[in-house]
Design a protein around this nucleic acid. Structure first.
Lengths: 232, 232
DNA sequence: AGGAAATCGAACCGAGCGGTTCGAAATATT
DNA sequence: AATATTTCGAACCGCTCGGTTCGATTTCCT
């Protein structure tokens, strides 16, 4: 009889049945159930029994995969964060028309952040951040913060091309983001808005926001180029 | 013997002992205890027994003054909202120097909203809004919304004086507010920042925000006047 | 087919919850 | 001092929670 367990201590190459608490499919299944429950009830109100039911997995199994409720929530947020901010920064990769790029990126950002699903997730994190500050911090750091950094890189590039004149790029990046949201985030997270803003609404806000931003930071060169390409 | 109870049905002029659940002092005492507990534990995690202890009031008494946990929380938020936004709009009442007024108002707003106490209160509301959306909506409506309306009136006046040129005042008011916060709100509410921003930090942000705002919406007249008064 | 192991499922634990009850104690009016 | 009523305080209710346990069952490898 071959001792597979001994081997797995060196190389986990077993193709067969996963060890207890190691099956990625089951893990995903649990997280999927947890997502539904946590997001629509909040951290405190969500019960492990609810998750058990929603995930179609026994309670004992959940506790094989996750130490406790808090760790399960963390794992969920980790995943959620990944999907929220995925593919959001691609539009910044190819530098063409500055205004168009800003509008396109701002629109994508605004739609994502104010979508019902994402707002609910953020509400849950904020609510939990009351008692587990590190969790909120981690979410911000690996989510919004990364976006902010990516925007800074983009603005730096625009400055280097002489299209923008910015003293404090860090601050300007924040200003840009906020201009693209212009009240939406607050309204959504306080559930003053019960529905996500319409596409038209967002486009109006972002267009105006980019306009403000460019009026403040656009160089003569930028406006000259824009006039030139408009008349072309 | 005078029947005071009968009179009180018409006119509650009794100076004596308040009716059950009517003593404003006791009520305030309960709310004060509730504030401490709710704000540092969040709605779900706060227990009525905690509040009992913190308020130095028996549980039965609390339930004489408030129907249930939720109503007590509402009453607290109602009060809190009142104190948060008190005296914040006075600076907009006397129209003198536009830029200075905007900076002064923006600074006050930013300090208030990002103060540890207010952030915690907002986090609690956001967390609760997950399960009681009307509560969050009411908070926003009677708090931030009123501020927004007040800013709109101010901007309207500036437009009327020919100092600003704004197509969409509603949107511009949002933009102004967001420029004054520039990332602070998000950082604070996710507890990425554990401490409130410094005065210097806020002043830098607000000064820059007002600058952006005026570059975008200031009229020739405004800049001419500013140049004139600068050289004077 | 046989056997090791992961999962199930349901009962169970102690704790704490929101909310109620009720006689004792405190307080103000007469 | 006597009376009326608010408040106290502690026990209690039914319930749900996060988390554990353990035998029965399923799954997959050999």
């Amino acid at each position: 009889m071959v001792d597979t367990t001994a081997d797995s201590d060196l190389l986990d190459l077993r193709k067969g049945r996963p060890a207890a608490g190691q099956d990625p499919v089951k893990r995903a299944q649990i997280i999927e159930g947890a997502r539904r429950v946590f997001i629509d009830k909040g951290f405190e109100a969500a019960s492990m029994n609810d998750i058990t039911r929603e995930a179609g997995v026994s309670k004992g199994t959940i506790y094989v995969y996750f130490e406790n409720k808090e760790e399960l929530f963390e794992a969920l947020i980790e995943e959620e964060r990944g999907t929220i901010f995925k593919n959001m920064y691609e539009v910044l990769d190819h530098f063409e028309d500055l205004r168009k790029t800003l509008v396109k990126f701002g629109t994508g950002l605004s739609i994502k952040i104010t979508s019902a699903k994402v707002i609910q997730a953020q509400r849950t994190v904020v609510g939990a951040a009351d008692r587990i500050p590190e969790l909120g911090a981690r979410f911000y750091e690996r989510g919004p913060k990364r976006g902010h950094d990516r925007v800074m890189v983009f603005l730096d590039e625009a400055v280097a091309r002489g299209l923008l004149k910015i003293d404090d790029v860090d601050l300007a990046a924040y200003q840009f983001t906020e201009l693209c949201l212009a009240g939406l985030f607050r309204q959504c997270i306080f559930s003053y808005r019960t529905k996500a803003p319409t596409q038209a609404e967002i486009e109006k806000i972002v267009t105006s926001g980019v306009d403000v931003f460019l009026k403040a930071y656009g160089t003569e060169k930028f406006f000259a180029e824009e006039r030139a390409s408009a008349s072309a």
